[in-house]
Amino acid sequence: MNLTLRVWRQSGPTDKGRMVTYKVEDVSPDMSFLEMLDVLNEKLILEGDDPIAFDHDCREGICGMCGMVINGVAHGEQRATTTCQLHMRHFEDGAEITIEPWRAAPFPVVKDLVVDRSAFDRIIQAGGFVSVPAGSAPDAHSVPVRKEDADAAFDAATCIGCGACVAACPNGSASLFTAAKITHLSLLPQGQPERLSRAKAMVDQMDAEGFGGCTNTGECTAVCPKGIPLDTIARMNSDYLKANAK
């Protein structure tokens, strides 16, 4: 496959940045999107150019490091897939592909396609934890949890914090991420004592970071590689309302 890429290049946080066009030749349809970028980077290095910086780690769709807006869609048009698990067979030979970093004020560009997602860490620090005595894992049946709750909590817990929800949201809102974390803890018995204070602290931190508000457009859940459902946001709203009513 031969491709034309239009990639966002920005040498550092203060650089203005611009789109640059590259040709990539002899791409195998079996390559992942990141491997295709690796091929381009090797060529750039040989030519003495600066390789395109992008985040990646596990390359098996579970770490949440990779992520770029491909042809206007976070992680590309393939649903429920991270960029590293997106394969070139989904593109046509000769295609022109636009690649941009996540765009949000709380996610400043570090370099090229790498953004600083520390804002997510600070939202977690604000309340995304349970204060329980640590020790060895308790027996599985010592604290009963309804099957439906366990399933829903697990679904929410599959959030890998990649930030695609923010990137896709027309408001640059981090509601899906925050709601996933709140839902995962608030459905389990261990999460109950801090349930309301957690919702308040995390939502307030999300606001303080400069993320936008949720308008329930559903763009986030559509691009989420883990398919976190929109009703987690309703649960977050409910907990936040109750926390404020107190």
């Binding site: 807006v69 206007g72 941009e100 004020a105 408001n171 809102s173 936008g212 691009v223």
Partner: peptide, 15 residues
């Protein structure tokens, strides 16, 4: 929302 996305996407496709 406008402040949360100061730099717009070159390409953006609604999903």
């Amino acid at each position: 929302a406008g402040k949360a996305r100061p730099v717009k996407y070159v390409a953006k496709k609604s999903q």
